[in-house]
Simulated assay, not measured.
Amino acid sequence: MTLDREAVLDAATQAGVGARLRDLRLQRGMSARSLADALSISPSAVSQIERGVLQPSVSRLIAITDALGVPLAAVFDARAGGAAEADTTVAGFALQRAAHSSSVTLDSGVAFRRLSPGPTPGVDLFESVYPPGGTAHPDTELFRHDGYEVGNMISGELTIDFDDERVVLRPGDSISYPCSRPHRIHNTGTEPAVAQWLIVHPDR
């Protein structure tokens, strides 16, 4: 039998994300049932995410990190609970080479890549790539989460639906809004959409 190398790598990535989420949950002394209750999903769904059987959407991943009280960056760390090891952390600065940056692929093929080279308390900085048809939230309903979000469009086209209007972002456009405002991000274009995002968590 011939194994598909990309499928094997993708399965390993998803299992790694799930394992890190499980470690973060256990570190905080939270049961799977308590996390499920906080997310309004079943304990079975939590188990499937942690085992890498079920890919979380962007909105689900953010909801999990919010419920656990950890930054989104913690998900990218092979060592659960902190930011990934930078190439250099000396003389008051952190450096991470492009080849060592961490990324995860979520439901509908949306990929996240952490941009911050070291711990940045209260701030998440990352790049997202939404394939055509890719969405942050699997349903048509809008979602909200903690923090304040700033986005900058690099290439392609992203659409953000708010409760009272729709905004289409194209290269060079930028946007900011409180994450508590109901919204949904999705790619309505015909090519992958690349954007950089800064999420500020004043309480962390």
Rank of each mutant, 00 (worst) to 15 (best):
L3C: 08
R5I: 14
E6I: 11
E6G: 06
A7T: 13
L9Q: 14
D10I: 04
D10A: 15
A11E: 14
A12F: 07
Q14N: 14
G16V: 00
V17Q: 03
V17N: 01
G18H: 05
G18V: 03
G18D: 04
L21N: 02
D23T: 12
D23Q: 13
S34A: 15
L35D: 02
A36F: 07
A36N: 08
S40F: 11
I41N: 10
I41T: 15
P43N: 11
A45M: 15
Q48V: 08
Q48D: 13
I49A: 03
I49S: 05
E50Y: 06
E50W: 04
R51T: 15
Q55G: 08
Q55K: 14
Q55F: 07
Q55S: 15
Q55A: 15
V58M: 12
L61P: 01
I64L: 08
A67E: 07
V70F: 06
A73R: 05
A73W: 08
A74C: 09
V75K: 02
V75D: 02
F76Q: 00
F76V: 00
R79H: 06
A80Q: 01
A84W: 04
A84T: 09
E85K: 06
A86I: 01
A86Q: 03
T88R: 10
V90C: 08
G92R: 07
F93V: 09
F93Q: 10
Q96I: 13
Q96D: 09
R97L: 10
A98H: 13
A99K: 12
H100L: 05
S102Q: 15
S102I: 09
S103G: 13
D107A: 14
D107P: 04
S108P: 06
G109N: 10
V110F: 06
V110K: 04
A111F: 02
A111N: 09
A111K: 13
F112T: 00
R114H: 10
S116M: 08
S116K: 07
P119F: 01
D124N: 09
L125C: 10
L125V: 13
S128F: 12
V129N: 02
V129P: 00
Y130R: 04
P132T: 04
G133E: 09
G134L: 04
T135S: 15
A136H: 07
H137G: 00
P138Y: 10
P138S: 13
D139L: 12
D139R: 12
D139Q: 12
T140S: 13
F143D: 03
R144C: 07
G147W: 01
G147M: 02
V150H: 14
V150L: 12
G151M: 11
M153T: 06
S155F: 06
E157L: 09
D161V: 00
D161L: 05
D161F: 00
E165V: 04
L169S: 05
L169F: 06
R170F: 04
P171A: 11
P171H: 10
S174H: 11
S176E: 13
S176M: 09
C179I: 02
S180G: 09
R181T: 12
P182M: 00
N187H: 02
N187L: 01
T188R: 08
T190L: 10
P192W: 11
V194W: 05
Q196M: 12
Q196E: 14
H201R: 15
D203P: 00
D203F: 10
